[in-house]
């Protein structure tokens, strides 16, 4: 299998604080990688490096065959292939659900308006929100907003999907609907990197689990094995804290 995302000795600092410490990581096509770890361990930063929202300080990072460091002008080529879902949804507040989803195909893929609407309707249907197409984000629940956000990220037909704590801002009963949509995305064979505290998602849909601690990848392996018998005291401790 070819490597979709490759970190080679990547470091990332904010001022004097090193957030990522010599990360080596290779993610193959169609892998569903779930990243867990205590807050401040660098999981979000790791994720945001992949689409260039954070610039790596040193090392090499290759995404979909493109080397990121020092190639600012290629960043859009990568972003077109990488969809991202944020903790706080960040739907465009002045556009309806449909317009949010149609935005990418129209502006980035350059498809016609009619075609973009068709793509958007299809995706909204897939996330179970066909009847909310003409609502503004402010008229939707958190769970619905996040499902629209997933549809929006999928609309560009990305090869990679990044999820940054997609359920952390949601009530428990709304999490389920978002996790179900994410499981569906995973089944479609898109490469996924998911930062989350939902261990149930890791064991159900994840093909690989990373445990990050203090800017390093402390554990890397099969979710079932790692969750059933955590090999380190740190992971054991962490799992107890998140109530798994």
């Amino acid at each position: 299998m070819s490597s979709m995302i490759e970190f080679k000795n990547v470091c990332k600092s904010f001022g004097d604080i090193e957030v990522l410490h010599n990360i080596d990581l290779s993610i193959a096509e169609k892998e569903v990688v779930v990243v867990v770890g205590p807050s401040g361990s660098g999981k979000s930063t790791l994720l945001r490096c992949i689409n260039g929202l954070e610039v790596v300080t040193s090392g090499d990072l290759v995404v979909n065959g493109i080397h990121l460091p020092g190639q600012k002008h290629l960043i859009r080529d990568i972003r077109k292939e990488v969809g991202m879902v944020f903790q706080l949804f960040y739907l465009f507040p002045h556009m309806t659900a449909l317009e949010n989803v149609a935005f990418g195909p129209k502006k980035v893929r350059g498809v016609s308006s009619a075609e973009a609407v068709e793509i958007a309707e299809h995706l909204l249907n897939q996330v179970g929100l066909a009847d909310r197409a003409n609502h503004l984000p402010s008229e939707l629940s958190g769970g619905q907003q996040q499902r629209v956000a997933i549809a929006r990220a999928m609309a560009n037909k990305p090869k990679i999907m990044l999820f940054d704590e997609p359920t952390s801002a949601l009530d428990p009963e709304l999490r389920e609907e978002v996790l179900n949509v994410m499981t569906k995305v995973a089944q479609e064979g898109i490469t996924m990197v998911v930062v989350t505290h939902e261990m149930s998602f890791a064991s159900k849909a994840g093909s690989r689990l990373l445990f990050m601690d203090e800017g390093k990848i402390a554990e890397d392996g099969d979710p079932h094995t790692l969750l059933k018998s955590p090999p380190s005291a740190r992971l054991k401790n962490f799992l107890r804290h998140v109530g798994y």
């Binding site: 689409n51 929202l53 859009r76 080529d77 990568i78 972003r79 077109k80 990488v82 969809g83 991202m84 944020f86 960040y90 739907l91 465009f92 935005f103 990418g104 502006k107 980035v108 956000a149 929006r152 990220a153 560009n156």
Partner: peptide, 8 residues
Amino acid sequence: EAGMSMGI
């Protein structure tokens, strides 16, 4: 960031 991450 949401806009930028789409590649616009």
